[in-house]
């Protein structure tokens, strides 16, 4: 049987409330697999158990019941993290370090040294386009730059799996687009990505498969296009069509017994429009 990038089996996490008899069930009997090379979106409202699931996968929190594995290794073992890069939500890192020092620090934690560490640092600074800010302290970085240096540190040991918690939270549309493009680039390189995000439009653009958590329970899971496509409807977009052609199509449709649900001019997305306008001004 092929090895899963992430395998979660009957995972339950219960948090006791201090000084009370009550308990909060953050995750309830969750089972799912993420295959190598996939971009998997874990969605859900606040408090649905997404971050707890991520923390258990990363070995930061022990499960109450069940198990999680990363490439076949139990994630409670430290060595399972050799294959993982993690970007937490709203990371700050050490503000007193420069961009380059940050990457060197995380590289050393992963066993990189000397020329190899220097090369990897330069390579990643170029990838996330922070070469010009390499000597600036993170205290002076913008939100988007922090997210990008965060992605770079997550990639420092060349991991096979990236766990990203709200990677575009608080980032402007241009920065958000850059991060989205980076994730698509990771996908091309065969890196598995587990993504938590509230930005459903972005998830729809980049994820192959999604799971929706609600009150700690996995309520839907599957391939994105299977989950959101409307089986009995077809979308047809025409270019340079004449009014006569449209009338003829409408007549044919009426004759066949089918029904036109909606006919309208396609629109660009607000994000694309915003990026076009702001890039012209530069």
């Amino acid at each position: 049987m092929a090895e899963h990038a992430i395998s979660i089996r009957n995972l339950t996490k219960v948090f006791p409330i201090p000084f009370r008899r009550e308990r909060v069930v953050a995750v309830r009997d969750l089972s799912l697999d993420v295959e190598p090379g996939q971009v998997y979106g874990l969605l859900g409202p606040n408090g649905s158990g997404k971050s707890t699931t991520m923390k258990i996968v990363l070995g930061l929190v022990p499960p109450t019941a069940g198990s999680t594995q990363i490439f076949g290794r139990d994630s409670s073992f430290v060595e399972s993290r050799e294959e993982v890069g993690f970007l937490p939500e709203n990371p700050y890192f050490y503000k007193f370090l420069t961009g380059e020092e940050t990457l060197r620090f995380f590289g050393k934690l992963c066993g990189l040294r000397g020329a190899k560490l220097r090369e990897r640092t330069n390579e990643l600074l170029a990838l996330v386009r922070l070469e010009n800010a390499r000597d600036r302290r993170l205290g002076g970085y913008s939100k988007g730059m922090l997210q990008r240096i965060g992605l770079a540190q997550a990639l420092i040991q060349n991991p096979r799996l990236l766990v990203l918690d709200e990677p575009t939270a608080g980032v402007d549309p241009a920065g958000s687009r850059e991060i989205r493009d980076l994730i698509l680039d990771f996908k091309k390189r065969g890196i598995t990505v587990l993504l938590c995000s509230h930005l459903l439009g972005q998830v729809q653009e980049i994820c192959d498969r999604i799971g929706i958590l609600h009150q700690g329970v996995l309520v839907r899971e599957g391939r994105l296009e299977e989950l959101i496509s409307i089986e009995n409807q077809t979308e047809l977009i025409l270019e340079n069509s004449t009014p006569e052609l449209l009338r003829q199509i409408e007549a044919d449709i009426a004759k066949s017994g089918a029904r036109i649900v909606e006919m309208r001019k396609p629109q660009t997305t607000l994000e694309r429009f915003f990026l076009e306008v702001t890039s012209d001004k530069k």
Binding site: V78, R81, N90
Partner: peptide, 14 residues
Amino acid sequence: EDRTLYTILAKPVP
């Protein structure tokens, strides 16, 4: 507070 601990312990650091 800064979540730096998460990024450090998410690396192979006991």
